[in-house]
Design a protein around this nucleic acid. Structure first.
Lengths: 363, 363
DNA sequence: TTGTAAGCGTTATCAT
DNA sequence: ATGATAACGCTTACAA
């Protein structure tokens, strides 16, 4: 194309050529010194000086094209406003940082096209690998995951046959833990505030709730079931609708955001928690412990799932030929004031009660 | 090296060469078709078919090296668990997405070296630009910001002379709004739970609180001031310490996380809010509205600051020669149940009360 | 319209 | 130890 090789990059910034010319050495020598491999003392001095003088900064894109790696790992989640993803992110970050890489997070906002687009874009080599936690999974989506040019690990439920590394939990069992606990503490009219049924976690929790009631021989009352988004406002509104037509003595909520909304609605309606209505959330995030009374919550091991996902990813980056793996983290129940029979306690710290993980349904 | 130019990339994935060879055309034609510019119908057909057959995916890194852009923008914040950054992020995301770019977020965890490292790494061309919201700013840090090879916009206070685009608020005035309100509603012993004094927001809020008391002729009682991290647990513990030695009738908190901690500590200690103690938070995040009673909070216009920062960034990416700009967003106070004199109201929505922004101190 | 080849900025190979 | 140069995978100016 005619433009002669200049010493400056197209936007005027110094390149190895600039440094090399200034130091009076070849670009090879300059590059070597800049990377700390080889070079005579005199060359090193000259190159270092030249680099400092012109304010040389290496172009990471060019370096990546050569090295076939970026040192970047991405995490794609639906809603970064949900504390469960914050916890997951922190766990992932710790692992990723220990490998000398940096973690970048992208919030897809639940727009599945956005998530696919991100996958197609970032996965095209901008990052060395990515962890995705989709709440809706289409075939197209799945194809993008499997075809990804860079390693991908999925956190969440995935079809049994998907050839992707996958870390999951048993949220059906998680809901069962909540129901078991409420039944054991004498609750009879147990309501359920769920997320959308067209999401993977939504359907799993719905199935879990119905199965748990059946297991305890409690007849199903559809009036006690409400659905909204996995958000605070939706949880509050869903609970208001529920209270307007029936009278529960306990509420199982599909995540902590919903549970906080439910708590708000209950208190605003003059119900005492837990005396009149017990509340159990899900995800066991920091948010649950922030509330007054503190919320009981089913831990789905988000931090642990994040940690494991990160480890799987690093392993696969190191060896892409690994077969697809699947790991499962058992849920456990943390009982706090919102479902205790005693009065709310001021102490925030309390170890989660671990229940044995039942093998079985893992929808 | 000597490795002959093959048709596959080094890791076995198809490249333009693969597609071109398969379609029986030159790489130039293949590239043109793949980018939708030119090509005869027949060529287009052949190339498209070849690309589909081999599962061609363009290498974004190589493309970026050529085009000098990545279509990626980064946001670096201290703690992504703080809802104020979530709100800021959402606002930024909206603007960034409208420019066809994608937003990536990095949590620095307050480790300033981490933030500098990120800057040095990402800014070296992995992203087209970045928005940084540091809570501690050192000279070294500032240098990295100014020297960044890609455009940077800072959200938060910055030395008056820094040659960086900057969007800020007046948090001193924000604290004053809170104190004014509490004084006006008859509170006399106003406590203050602040964040660390070695942070930029911490010092600004401290100065604001002291100035506000002076302005109202209220003598300063150091017993009423406590300091901790900008976190929930720290806020709760700081409030416990404060309550152990004195008896406030109002509490101004340096952010909403602290305010939630304070609320928890107060309720656990048997204080009624707002009857015994009024609470005002800061940042006016969703968290404030989630609480029961809902928390009054000083809005520092985080979403607006984010939006403006994103716009400044896009402008600078488009024209790097722009002079450094500085914008300011005024604070406002949202009065809710936690500091109202009436009983807590169940309604969540309430428009923030806008106070006229006083010119002046903008530390 | 098409192919050839230069070039993005870096690293790595090879011969010196 | 050093320098010339090929390559990373892509886009694009230019000539045909």
């Amino acid at each position: 194309m005619g433009r002669k090789r200049l010493q400056e990059s197209v936007d005027g910034r110094p390149t190895v050529h600039t440094v090399a010319a200034r130091a009076g050495v070849s670009i090879a020598s300059a590059s070597r010194v800049l990377n700390g491999v080889g070079g005579s003392p005199e060359t090193i001095r000259k190159v270092r000086a030249a680099a400092a003088e012109v304010g040389y900064v290496p172009n990471a894109i060019a370096r990546s094209l050569q090295s076939q790696r970026t040192g970047l790992v991405a995490l794609a989640v639906e809603d970064i406003g949900n504390p469960v993803y914050v916890e997951m992110m922190r766990a992932i970050e710790a692992v990723v940082a220990s490998s000398g890489r940096q973690l970048l997070v992208h919030a897809t906002g639940g727009r599945i096209d956005n998530e696919t687009a991100l996958l197609r874009r970032l996965a095209n080599r901008y990052v060395d690998g990515m962890i995705v936690s989709p709440i809706r999974v289409t075939d197209d989506h799945l194809t993008a995951l499997v075809d990804s040019p860079v390693p991908v690990v999925v956190v969440g439920q995935l079809g049994a046959d998907a050839a992707v590394d996958n870390v999951r939990t048993d949220s059906r069992h998680g809901v069962a833990l909540a129901v078991d606990h409420l039944v054991a503490t004498g609750r009879h009219r147990i309501g359920f505030v769920n997320g959308p049924l067209d999401t993977v976690p939504g359907t799993a929790r719905d199935a879990g709730f119905r199965a748990a009631l059946t297991h305890h021989g409690i007849p199903l009352d559809e009036d006690l079931i409400e659905v909204g988004d996995f958000q605070y406002a939706a949880g509050r509104e869903a609970t208001q609708r529920l209270l307007a037509r029936t009278d529960p003595d306990a509420l199982v909520c599909a995540n902590d955001l919903i549970a906080v909304g439910a708590l708000h609605a209950l208190l605003a309606a003059g119900r005492r928690v837990p005396q009149d209505v017990a509340v159990v959330g899900m995800d066991d995030t920091e948010l649950a412990r922030m509330m007054f009374p503190q919320l009981s919550s089913v831990s789905l091991g988000s931090a642990e799932r994040g940690r494991r996902a990160a480890e799987l990813l690093l392993q696969r980056i190191a060896d892409p030929s690994l077969p697809p793996r699947r790991e499962q983290v058992p849920p456990s129940l943390a009982i706090r004031a919102s479902s205790g029979t005693t009065l709310p306690a001021p102490r925030p710290a309390d170890p989660p009660t671990n229940h044995p993980s039942s093998e079985g349904v893992t929808s």
